[in-house]
Structures are given as structure tokens and as C-alpha cells.
Design a protein around this nucleic acid. Structure first.
Lengths: 550, 550
DNA sequence: ATGTCGGCTATCTGCCGACAA
DNA sequence: TTGTCGGCAGATAGCCGACAT
């Protein structure tokens, strides 16, 4: 089978951080985001993120107009997702094309500070402040050498400094800075019959300088200091084909994976470029976002959902769709990766080909949010089985919660014997999964909600319910902690959600037999009943987030 | 040892090798070589080559104007040189810049066919046919929009079709194909006072289309079908900085090494790009060239040498220099790599900064060639020692001669017991080295030459001697083979040179103690004398190459 | 409201020989 | 022999309102 190429056998990592690969003078964040698009968000520095090599690989492939990852060896030792600390984010723009991208330094972690997780939650709620801008797709006349730029009236009035209409005709000189901080000067005039706003002198220099064509877009931003910023967004032409004369595309592709594999093996920092316009999807996700999607969304075939998409002119719009399939995108290289594992159909087939595969964390399920349902463990109806997916999940969680060790071993004062030797976390999760999927889970949810301590939670809408539940759990967290693993409450913080969510794991692969299954069953029957306190404790420490419609 | 301006024995344009990364329509080899420069030679397809990851890495670094390989992990499992079979060579040119480069598919080998080695020898002798061309560095007037291109008179008369001087003024339409097979049309006119050749209409389109500036060069080639070809060579501006918006330079650098490491570990093919203008030095060398330089050149500090360098206008010139140091370029990452291990000083400090480090196979030593000196093994005067360098050398040779196995074990009918358990190939070589360096080696060489079977070899010049010896050995090979390891004489062929050359290993590192040294000594004393037949046999099958000044 | 066009300069492109270097 | 320039014509760039959508 495959091999672990060099990566694992790599010696000295790179000690010193980004030694200034570029000397770019701190790109304006407003302009960068305007060019990147309204849906692009970058996790906060210092936060916990999930990195998907598969998504990264897709970005490279897309940029090279290369089929798939032919010729690129698989990296069996490279997990399909890495939990990383985001050390730095630097906004960049290509000096030649003005393409925006972000350079991120990630470090795979096995343990992390409480703040990192909180920061990743922050990313979910934090909205970027609305900025004043306009975006126009250039017409043939705009880009022709025959004339200037016709400014949409509302745009000119909103963004440009107002003209002195005592002049005949009213005109002024505009200065705008592009993403490299170069200043472009235009003559802004209000003339013609009927009257309209035009940019004349200076405009053609800009068009030729930036190599703009009809179909490309320009963005004028007015920043908080009332200064004009000027960005461009090119039409989706064929990929720029970064293949160079010194580096084969194979090498580039390998480089991305090898860098990640090396970093993974050594938990050393590595650097990636995220190009929001080249890539179909973000491949560095706030950990909290991933977590929430994975463990609080009930995903099933045929489910209806909404998803934000970018419109022309930098707006956003919600589109509706249906989940038509759940499967690995690449079952060979990236088994159980969750990366774009949902096949979807869209209600409006127009509006250009929307992607037919998305990831769980990109969508908003339309079914009521699936609330956490911790419940007593009454034993097992069917033998538990360990499959590849479980093993991988377990590995992922061990990275995140190393204090759990090989087996769950919680010492709970209320219980005689809370240790569950031989019962791994994932096995326990699988038990829960089977239970919750076996019966009317919504009924149990209601039961749980009614029994919750806050009486206000009864008989209210789902969204509000969720909000309140969220608040409540936060309060609980701040108060008494019955669930206190050793060394846990100081600065390390467990991702409790993982352990008692009803896992929507049906899409992750068939359950196969495992040789330990009989032993597992025995252990569970012996010690299973003691799991109750664990469930209770976790229910109280959970962060339950509901779908908040923005 | 002159650069063999070897063949563009480039076979079929990549027999569907790289799954068609580019659909370039088979680039003209003459034009490619004209643009690449007179010193660039590509080993023949199917031949045996030595690949230097270090040199490859240098090319990437140079193309990214990045200091060194900071941030890039070292690959301890990646040898500093890989013996590879050259599966394919495809000539390429960057679609945007016309930069020429070659895509090569290499496969590390542990064993190889006889033809592969012969092909690599072929590369040393084969000269590319001289082609008709001229190269002019563009002046300010040539590139200005104000006028056309002033053609040097001799160039026009040599390369262009002759004008019809009955016309007044004499003029014609020229058509030339660039490296992408695009046709450019120029008006060629002979006018002015005094008369001169000019390209007028069409010229400025070419200049702007190719983005040429004063200082860049154009090359007009007349091929064998009397057609005009047109190439460009840009001035040495700052590196093009291939860093893209989707791939960090770290990733690119890692990609190159990871690809090689992976290929090395799996002896699987990998693809590299060789850009002759971006790289200071070729990093894929014909095996025979490497072999010859390593084992027949006597290199020492203070030695004088000559080296071919490229002049302006695509000529070549020999420069003289002195070896001022012998050391590893990067003793940490690439110990004993031989890659640019010679520090040199040049007689003419002018003519632009010449490189101050070169590799052994790039120079022509001025001292007389050092001939092979196989001689009986009389036992050991000092204990053998194994150092890092020896181990590495041994590993290298085991790759090349796997049939030798862990220990030399030759069954020779003329000997009672020819097995030499415990005596490794490198140890044996070290013995020879010590012997040959201990006494007047030239005298022994003469002794050997006189005792050779061909009487014509006496009293003739060194170069001719070598040539005859070469012929003779080839004849011997075809006749009786006393040295017949099993399965060897069919299609596998040993690199005999390695085993009895007087190794110029002094630059390769200090000899250190080894714990097995006493045991080795004992074994050698027990069985050493039986090694004589081996030496004799090898002497007969040797390929001895002399310094042939071209 | 705004995309495209004809009309009209101002500027640039590009061919020529003159004149050095 | 050949690099640069002034002179000159033709082409293009680029500003204007007219007109249509």
C-alpha cells in the first residue's frame, strides 16, 4: 500500500517564524475583505482551527487546472484534519495580479489553552462591521480606450466626495489607493445629457495598468478616514495556471501535503496560503464552527437546508437546497474526512452552477436544531463495533482531549466506580448514537428540555429556545462544575460537546466488524450503568449552540 | 574535460508521460538550445544520470529570491545524490515569458541495463551540430516605439534570405516562428545613408508582445529547412519570483525535496523541471560524466584548471582558475554531496562575478589525467577505518551494483577461496587508496601500462593512450570474461571503474575510527591475499577514460 | 439611469534619412 | 558599421454630447 514519504522522517523543523517572506506594507484589511468577498472570514489569531489538507490540496489543484491529484502520493500518516493553533494571519495581495490571499501559520496541537477555544467560538458570532463601498462590473465601454468609466449614480453619491455643483461642469480630482497602497488619480466629472458621473482622465491608465477587461469588477471603498480605496475582482477566467518554469505542478502539490505531514508529525508550525477566490471552499475552519456543525446538526438524506452564497456586486443571498447524498469525496485518499461530504441539489438551478458538494459546516439545516440529548445508559442492544471511522474519530479527539487518555476514566464523586476500563470514548459515543437513532429522538429531546432547570424553556420557538439554552449553559459553566477531570479546570478545557452529542455519523462509512467486539460488549455490560453521572455532568458543561439566523 | 555540448538526444516528446501537463506542440530543439545557451546539455533519454537534490533545491531558491533553505526541513533519508534512469526529457517554454526549461522524468535505480550506462557515456562525446544563428542584445533604439530594429550586417547576410537588390529600396517580408510556433512577420528593408538592414513593420508588435526591454536579446536561427526561428533571452533581471498566491515558497521548496525523497524511498519515477537560466548549475548529470570526474581527476588544493563559460552573444570561452578550497557547501544538510564542493578563484576577476564554487565535473584539471591503477593486494599496512563518507559511498555503490551484496564475495576458479567475508567494497577501496597514495603512483601506472596485453600502448601520448586503452577494454569485455558474477554478463553491467580507481577522497571528510576495525583487520589478513584475482579481473573489464580535450 | 456611438482633437506610433560615434 | 535623433504622416487615445435602452 502507500508509504509514508519523507515527511515522517524529517529532522530539524524550522525554528524561526515567517522570516519576512514579503516586505508588503501591511495591507488594508477593509480593502482585502472587500476584494475577498462577503463570505470570507479568517479565524482570529490565537484561535483553534481545523485544517483540511484535502481542501488545501483542492485549492492547489484548482489553481493548476490539473485534473485531480494524479501522481501525487498519498500521505497515510497525514490525518484528513488537523486541529491547529492559528499563530498568525497575514493579508497579502499578489504584486502582479492584485489577487488577495492570506498567509497563515498553523501549528498542530495536542493540547491547547482555554482561550484558543474561546477565540474560535468568538469567530462564529463576530460580524465584520459593515463598510461603505460599491462594486461595479466593468462594461465594454468602461474598458475601451475610447472613453472613461461610467459611475453608477447612487454609488458616486454614496462613496465619492460630493461635487461642487457651482462649477460648470462640476468636477474634481479623485485619489484612491489600491491594495498595494499605490495612489491612482482620476478626474471625476458630472456631465453629459442626461447628466451622469464619469471618471475620465487617469481611468485608462488604471485599466491598462491592472489589465482589466469587461467583466472584471472594481470596488471603491470609503474607509473610516474618508479616504478612497480601490480594489479589483477579476471575472472567473480560467485558472491562472501557476505552473512555473522551475517547479512541476506535482512538486507543488506534494509540497503542500508534505509540509502538512511534516508539521503533523512534529507538531511544528507550517505556513499555508489561503486564496479565497481560487478555492471553492475555506479549508481552515474555526474549531468551534466545525464542532458545532458536527455535533449539533442532525444531517440526513433528503434534508432541506439553506446556504449563504455570494451574489454579484458583493452581496450575499441565501439559497435553498436538499441533501441528496452523503459520502466521502475521496474515499481512497481521504476517508471519512467530512470535507464536502454532502451531495446537494439546489432549488434554483440557474444562477450559474452552484457547487454540488458542500461540507456540513457550510449549511444551515432547516430542521429544528438537534439538541444535545444526554441520557442514561441502559446497556447495549447491539454489539458495538469499531470501524475505521471510529478509530479516526477517536484519534482526532485524543488530540483534542489528551487528558482522556486511552480509555475513559472519570472519577466522579457521586459514583462508586466511575471508571470504565476498556471502553473507549468513541465506543461510548457509538452507543449513544445507536440509542438516539433507534427511537423517537425528538421525543427524548423534549423530555430533556422539560427537565432542564430553567422553566422558561418550555413552549417557546426553537430559535429562542436555543438562545436561552445557550445562555443557560454558559451560566452553568461559570458556576459549579461537577465534571472536573484532574488538571482540567485550570487552563485546559475539554470539548465536551463531542462526547455526548447524538452523532450524525451515518454518512461516515459502513460499520464493520472488529475483533474486539465481544470483549467490548462484555465490558460495557459490566460497567455501562455507571455512565449515567458522566452524561449528567456533561450535559451541564456543554456548550449548546443553536442555529442563529443572522 | 570540456562540457560535452551533448546531444539533444531528446527522444519522443514525452511518450504520454506526465499525463499531458501542457499541450505544447513539441518545441523545436534547435531553438530551445539556442535560448538555453551553448553550455546546456541534456542527457539522452534512457541514460543513467546522477540527480542532486541540493542543486535542485538551489534552483528553486534562486527562483524565489529566498535566502537559503530556511524553514525547509532536512530530509535525512534523502541521499545527496540519486542514480536515476532518465525516462523522458521534454523541452518546454513558459507560455508567458518564453523562458526555456526541460521537464525530466527520473527514476532512482538500484540496477540498470548496460545500455543506460553506455548512453550516459555517449553524452560525453556527442557534440550538438553547430547551427546557423545570430544573437543581438537590444539597444534603446531597438526597443523604443520610435523606430524598428537595426540588424547587424553580417548577421543579416548570414541568416536572412538574401534581398533582391534590383528593388529600390531592397526589401522583403520575413516570417519567423517563435518557440511556441507562433509566426511573426517583419518587413526587412535595406535602406538609409549609409545603407543598413532594418526590421520595421511588425517589429514593435514583437517587442511589446514579448515585453522586451533594452538589454534583452533576440536570437534568429536558420534551421536545416531554411526556415527562420526566433527566440529571446532576457537580461538577468531579478528572479521572476515565482511565489504565487496559492503556494508558499516553503511549500514549493518542500515539494521538490519531498518528491525526490518519496521517489528515492520507492524507486518510483518523479518529475523535475530544469531551468538552465534560473539555475547556476545543472543538477542532473550523466552518470559517466560524474564517474569520470570523481575517479579519474586528481583534485587537490591549489590545482589549476580551466572551465568553459558562456560569453555574451551565445559564445563559449575558457577561463582559468585555481582551486582554493575543497569543502562541503552545506555540511549540515548535504554532507559529502560533492555538489559544488570546490572553492575556486579566477584569473580574470573581471567579466562579471563568476561563481566561486563549482563541482568537480565542471572543470578540466590542468594536471595530467590520473590513470587507473589496479594492483595486487598485498595486505594492509594500517587498519581500515569506516567513516561517514565511506558508508555513504558504499551505499551509493550498492545502489549501482546491487549484485555485490553486503560483502564482496567473488567465486573465482583460479583461487582456492575467493570469498572475503566481512570485507566491504568501500573498505577494499580504501585499502587501494592508501596504497596508491602511499607510493609513487605514477610509476605503478607505468608498470601497469607496460604489462598490458597490447604492445602498441607503449610510448605514446597520454590522450591517445587513454583512447586505446578504452578501445582495448571494450574488446576485452566482448571476449573472455574471467570476472563473471552470476547473472551479470547478460544485460547488467558493473561500474568497474569505481572499484579500483585511486580515489581522490581527501576532500570528503576526515577518517574516523570504527568499532569494527579490529575485526576487519583480522578478516583482511586472513583472506586478503586472495583478492588478487579480483583485481586482475577488474582491470580487464574496466572502462578507463582519459581526459579528452575537446 | 447608463451603455454605446460619431465627432473631434491631442498625442503617440512608426518610417525616413541625417548625423555622429 | 550602427545608435540616436528630427521630421513627418498616419493611427490611436480620449473627451464631448447624442441617442437608445
Amino acid at each position: 500500500m502507500a508509504q509514508s514519504p519523507a515527511s515522517s522522517a524529517v529532522a530539524a523543523p524550522a525554528p524561526c517564524e515567517g522570516a519576512g517572506e514579503r516586505k508588503a506594507p501591511a495591507i488594508n484589511g477593509e480593502l482585502w475583505h472587500a476584494c475577498a468577498g462577503p463570505l470570507v472570514s479568517l479565524p482570529p489569531v490565537g484561535s483553534l482551527v481545523v485544517y483540511f489538507p484535502q481542501g488545501h490540496s483542492e485549492q492547489v489543484a484548482a489553481s493548476m487546472q490539473k485534473d485531480v491529484e494524479a501522481h501525487v502520493p498519498s500521505y497515510p500518516n497525514l490525518p484528513s484534519k488537523l486541529i491547529c493553533l492559528l499563530h498568525s494571519v497575514t493579508l497579502q495581495a499578489d504584486p502582479d495580479t492584485d489577487e488577495v490571499y492570506a498567509q497563515m501559520t498553523l501549528q498542530p496541537v495536542n493540547t491547547y489553552a482555554k482561550e484558543a477555544l474561546q477565540l474560535s467560538e468568538l469567530a462564529l458570532r463576530q460580524a465584520r462591521p459593515q463598510m461603505e463601498f460599491f462594486c461595479k462590473t466593468l462594461t465594454a465601454s468602461d474598458t475601451s480606450t475610447h472613453g472613461g468609466f461610467s459611475v453608477p449614480r447612487r454609488a458616486a453619491e454614496k462613496i465619492f466626495p460630493s461635487l461642487d455643483f457651482s462649477l460648470q461642469p462640476p468636477c474634481q480630482e479623485l485619489q484612491a489607493r489600491d491594495i498595494h497602497d499605490n495612489v491612482w488619480t482620476f478626474r471625476h466629472i458630472f456631465r453629459g445629457q442626461p447628466k451622469r458621473h464619469l471618471l475620465t482622465t487617469g481611468w485608462s491608465l488604471f485599466v491598462s495598468g491592472k489589465k482589466l477587461f469587461a467583466g472584471d469588477s472594481v470596488i471603491f471603498v470609503r474607509d473610516e478616514k474618508q479616504q478612497l480605496l480601490l480594489g479589483i475582482r477579476r471575472a472567473n477566467r480560467q485558472p491562472t495556471n501557476i505552473s512555473s518554469s522551475v517547479l512541476s505542478s506535482d512538486s507543488m502539490h506534494i509540497g503542500v501535503l508534505a509540509a502538512a505531514a511534516h508539521a503533523s508529525a512534529n507538531t511544528s508550525p507550517f505556513t499555508i496560503f489561503y486564496n479565497p477566490r481560487a478555492s471553492p471552499t475555506e479549508f481552515v475552519i474555526p474549531f468551534a464552527k466545525y464542532q458545532k456543525a458536527m455535533y449539533s446538526n442532525q444531517i440526513s438524506l433528503g434534508m432541506r437546508f439553506r446556504m449563504m452564497c455570494e451574489t454579484e456586486e458583493l452581496g450575499t443571498r441565501r439559497y435553498m437546497g436538499t441533501i441528496t447524498g452523503i459520502s466521502d469525496l475521496d474515499p481512497v485518499r481521504w476517508k471519512n474526512s467530512q470535507w464536502r461530504s454532502l451531495q446537494v441539489g439546489w432549488d434554483e438551478s440557474a444562477a450559474g452552477e452552484r457547487r454540488n458538494r458542500v461540507s456540513i459546516w457550510e449549511i444551515e439545516p432547516l430542521a429544528a436544531p438537534f439538541f444535545i440529548c444526554p441520557q442514561p445508559f441502559f446497556g447495549v442492544k447491539r454489539p458495538r463495533q469499531l470501524d475505521d471511522e471510529s478509530l479516526e474519530m477517536e484519534s482526532l479527539m485524543k488530540r483534542a482531549m489528551p487528558w482522556l487518555g486511552e480509555e475513559i476514566c472519570i472519577k466522579d464523586p457521586q459514583t462508586q466506580s466511575a471508571t470504565m476500563p476498556g471502553l473507549s470514548l468513541v465506543q461510548w459515543m457509538n452507543m449513544n448514537r445507536q440509542q438516539s437513532s433507534s427511537l423517537a429522538s425528538t421525543a427524548m429531546q423534549s423530555e430533556y428540555l422539560r427537565s432542564a432547570s430553567n422553566p422558561a424553556m418550555q413552549n417557546i420557538g426553537a430559535a429562542d429556545l436555543a438562545r436561552q439554552l445557550y445562555m443557560q449553559n454558559h451560566l452553568l459553566q461559570q458556576n459549579s462544575m461537577q465534571f472536573n477531570p484532574p488538571k482540567l479546570h485550570q487552563q485546559m478545557k475539554p470539548i465536551n460537546d463531542l462526547s455526548n452529542a447524538a452523532l450524525p455519523l451515518n454518512q461516515l462509512g459502513a460499520i464493520r466488524n472488529h475483533q474486539d467486539q465481544k470483549q467490548d460488549q462484555q465490558r460495557q455490560q459490566q460497567s455501562g450503568i455507571q455512565a449515567i453521572p458522566l452524561s449528567q455532568a456533561q450535559a451541564q458543561t456543554n456548550i449548546v449552540q443553536a442555529q442563529v439566523i443572522l
